[in-house]
């Protein structure tokens, strides 16, 4: 099966400052991956390379079987849906549903297809009630969700999200988590669901949604392993400038079987332990 995203020895510089050095990685369809690292580690630059907004100085970025060098960002949008920081500033249509429809229309999908995509995206994020409202009449947090709905409506094989939960409360974060889990699990282009590559400093959100962690450190891929494994290694997290989420902290402190990192998993294990039926 073709990878949703593959980076082969990718390097990138701004002038003489090297931002990414020899980064190689592969994302399979439907894979849910956290891109972590300190500020300035090169995460946003990597997203710009994946979306075609920047071109690698060395190496190749493959989106499916497309070399990003051969396609402009508006063409790559057929395969890559992206949400950047400050995404709420991109909204401009008179109604939320019109704005969400902007991408599919720009890509030339049929009118009926566009309507279906918009409805699915709004449903996924539970924004149906606001569909006819002006985006700027919505609170900032919902505008952020509106931008995410725009990316979901493209129904791409790869979703690249830069801090999708910044400024969202717990309920809205849960909404985003549900929508992305549904999208990653759904059969789509390429056979699997959409692969997710999510930049986040919110490890609680990451733990609930994502399975694998890529950590960039000064432009190099410092770590590529399961998120649960990374969250179990407190000392390593500290050296990478990351803070362990409470559930992972609790799992370690109580030495819970399987060291769950998700709240629901931890609750199940705790219930088993409390009932005297803990796994050995």
């Amino acid at each position: 099966m073709t990878a949703a995203l593959r980076l082969d020895g990718v390097s990138f510089s701004y002038g003489v400052v090297q931002v990414l050095a020899d980064v190689s990685l592969v994302l399979a369809p439907g894979e849910r991956v956290a891109l972590l690292g300190r500020n300035g580690a090169g995460k946003s630059t990597l997203v710009r390379l994946v979306t075609g907004l920047a071109r690698p100085a060395a190496g190749t970025v493959w989106v499916g079987d497309w070399d990003t060098r051969d396609h402009s960002p508006d063409v790559l949008a057929r395969r890559v849906g992206s949400v950047f920081q400050h995404a709420d500033q991109q909204l401009f249509a008179r109604t939320l549903e019109d704005d969400v429809a902007f991408g599919p229309r720009a890509l030339g999908f049929e009118r009926s297809d566009v309507a279906g995509r918009v409805a699915r995206a709004l449903d996924a994020l539970e924004l149906g009630a606001q569909a006819r409202e002006h985006p700027y009449d919505l609170p900032p947090a919902l505008r952020k969700l509106a931008a995410l709905a725009g990316a979901l409506a493209l129904e791409p094989a790869l979703l690249v999200l830069d801090e999708p939960t910044a400024g969202l409360d717990r309920a809205l974060r849960a909404r985003v988590t549900r929508a992305l889990l549904e999208r990653a699990g759904r059969a789509g282009a390429g056979g699997g669901g959409a692969a997710l590559l999510v930049i986040t400093h919110d490890l609680t959100f990451a733990a609930e949604l994502l399975d694998r962690a890529l950590v960039l450190d000064r432009g190099r891929l410092a770590c590529d392993e399961s998120l649960a494994g990374l969250l179990g290694a407190a000392a390593r997290l500290e050296t990478l400038g990351l803070l362990r989420p409470p559930v992972a902290e609790l799992s370690t402190a109580l030495d819970l079987p399987g060291r769950p990192i998700r709240a629901a998993d931890a609750a199940r294990v705790l219930a088993r332990v409390a009932g005297g039926r803990a796994d050995p």
């Binding site: 960002p73 057929r78 950047f84 995404a87 902007f102 991408g103």
Partner: peptide
């Protein structure tokens, strides 16, 4: 950048 990535 954002609009180009939405297909503009």
């Amino acid at each position: 950048d954002a609009q180009r990535c939405r297909g503009l």
